[in-house]
Design a protein around this nucleic acid. Structure first.
Lengths: 234, 234, 234, 234
DNA sequence: AATGAATGAGTCTTCATTCAT
DNA sequence: TATGAATGAAGACTCATTCAT
């Protein structure tokens, strides 16, 4: 069995695990269920992945790779466009990414939380050693900053090409826009699928467009926005 | 033992549970630990709370009561002020609430997720019956919309008193601002406490003020913002 | 439940475990079986003992305590007698101890093997951490040298009171006699219980007495024996 | 593939298994490890050996063959010498055999224990069928008494040639001397390799020589020893 | 009310063994 | 012969919950 076949098997397992983690969460998902869903024996899961945590970290890696890949594709696709358009596309891509695969979103946030604990000597001990020992964890360590870097660099590019106002501070703007989009994702989750994906009276789709327009206004930093950002430039 | 003593005991248990759920999460917190932290026997915990889920739902209720109470205090405190000021104070209060007690924040979001599953016949079955049977769950059902209602009504009040632009759609604005603030909370969590609570180069405190300024600009709906919101008014 | 009841329970568990370990060995004994034999639930075993290794170390402690106690009783009983008589009684006691409870004998040897690995930096890593973490392990660490000390000191006493030849080197003699007795135990195990406990044509009981006579001759160090020991005095 | 190649493969497997069983014991050695150490696939191990127990019984056979071969070589080498010298050489050879390969020693004792269980209808059922089914088990059945026979016959020869005292009972003397040497082996194991292979204050090498001198005195049955053995002659 | 010993279903994980290739 | 992926029974251990006192 070559590398290719191995990757196929791993993919089958990961897909089964993703479905279940996604539906029931890490703790309520049983390795037995993963095996059943993947149509293989429990032992085989352990042949390909060291343990449940390893499996989750493998998914985390895929999550990071996916969003990075989506950003890179966006850059490719929008080569001819201005920085602001790429940033707005990033936001749109990120919204769709979140909406489409909540598990990936959760895995990314879980990892960021892990990093916080990891960087604090007091809490570092508390991290499950199985996570730290996972080879996938190591790989994610290398990937973790890539999405942020790409986002910030696209804002910088927009400033250089004039499409984003020069008074904008790239990092601050990045985090503000991503906060907006993350909050949107969090709240839109509660939209009612039985009722045309509506939250209270708001259609999620409309709301998404509104958010993107707002982001554009912020980046262009028209009068009103200057005020908002002047307070925090440093 | 009277009602008063009962409340004291329940409070002791809830405080112990909150500390532990907050630090380690629901699944990694053991009833044994809760009992130990509360300085009482495990049996007594079960005398006051039906089960672990019931305990969590009691905390969820406290979370909703707390944020509602904070909003009401804000209204009292700002009686003389304009609607926009109350809304901005709400946002600030909510940010502090999130930052101070992540467990409450998580409990509220957990409940909203529960509601979504509850409203969908396909997923309703999947909800842990222990949750549905909790008397606290019933109480939270009644409280759940209160914070949203208060937020939206304050925006409406602001529109009536002219402090918020009349073109603003209260619900849309509410969700957008709350999304912004929720995303801020989510991301600010990853700030480095070892380094003056800084995220990349941004001081969390500065960022918070920036977010509030931005919120104000949005509510005043100056030129640039109109564009953003026109697209979504309906 | 007081300390006393706790000890009763622990004793019940230890007795069940001893029976099984004794019959099937450590690896073939299942915690389920121990629970069943002790007429209690598996969980309760773990309430009293941290894990299987801990249980085994508790037995090891009892083994050391038992042989030490037997030696002490021998000393009490033979207060009026000469050193050589106590030493011979020690040997007899030790033979009976081995014969009666092979598990205790094995536990003691297992522990000595553990100590060897423990004292060698190269092999220390290889020791099961569950063993090292057992509180019983710690206690045995303190007891381990006691039987040897008692044996050697009784030989010294015999030399002082003239019942053991003054040319005898206590440590060398101790180890030689114990070797003899340990080997006897090892081989006598293979005696045929179907055939009057006979090994080939030898009755175990007779052989035991022969061994004790030999030990006496050695300690008295008559002419022939001097030769044997002169080579090794140092 | 001819018989020769087959033997080579089997030898490779046995050597790998011996190393591992020796270091970690039967239960802690995994078939995976054996395969890896032998540089072949797990499947191939099972092609040459029926199962793990079969592998162990093959080693047991080698152990018996080895000690028998050593005794035979000793006989050859000492053809011109007296019976007592051969017996002493046997003891020396056995001590070195034990010291050099603990696994072989353990395998032999394990087999003797097996025989005891095998000869007792009550315990016969308890023996792992995989052991009884091993073809190597059958072969060892035939070899098992050979070392004892050789030892006893050499003592008899010594008595006939006058080098061993005529009052000596060969079987009793054999078991007593072997007991001494087995006990020596067991205890010397605990010598400290970090400290010049010393047990308490005794150098193992010196002790070994002392043991051999003692054996000689016993076999010559000088005055003091007569007493020891008279009691048990029967 | 209060205790904490007792329960046992449930979970992760291991590993000897098999089998398709 | 040779491989190593695949199996699944088995086992150590956990922990929410109960209940006798």
């Amino acid at each position: 069995m070559g590398v290719y076949e191995r990757q196929i098997k791993e993919k089958e397992i990961l897909e089964a695990a993703q479905e279940l983690f996604s539906k029931k969460g890490f703790y309520l998902t049983k390795m037995d269920d993963v095996a059943k869903r993947a149509n293989m024996s429990k032992g085989l899961i352990y042949f390909y992945f060291k343990n449940k945590e390893d499996l989750y970290m493998a998914i985390t890696q895929k999550a990071f790779e996916e969003i990075i890949s989506l950003y890179q594709k966006s850059i490719q696709k929008n080569k001819a466009k201005k920085g602001i358009d790429i940033v707005i596309d990033f936001l749109s891509v990120f919204m769709d990414f979140n909406a489409k695969n909540h598990l990936y979103r959760d895995a990314i946030f879980h990892f960021l939380g892990l990093m916080k604990a990891h960087n604090n000597p007091k809490t570092k001990e508390g991290i499950d050693p199985l996570i730290l020992e996972s080879p996938y964890f190591q790989k994610v360590l290398e990937l973790q900053h890539e999405p942020t870097k790409l986002g910030i660099s696209m804002i910088s590019q927009g400033i250089r090409d004039g499409s984003i106002h020069k008074s904008i501070e790239p990092e601050m703007a990045y985090f503000t826009l991503w906060a907006l989009v993350i909050g949107f994702d969090k709240l839109s989750t509660f939209g009612d699928p039985q009722n045309n994906e509506t939250l209270y009276k708001i259609k999620i789709e409309d709301w998404k467009n509104s958010i993107l327009s707002l982001a554009q206004a912020i980046l262009k930093n028209e009068k009103s926005m200057q005020q908002a950002f002047q307070a925090t430039l440093f």
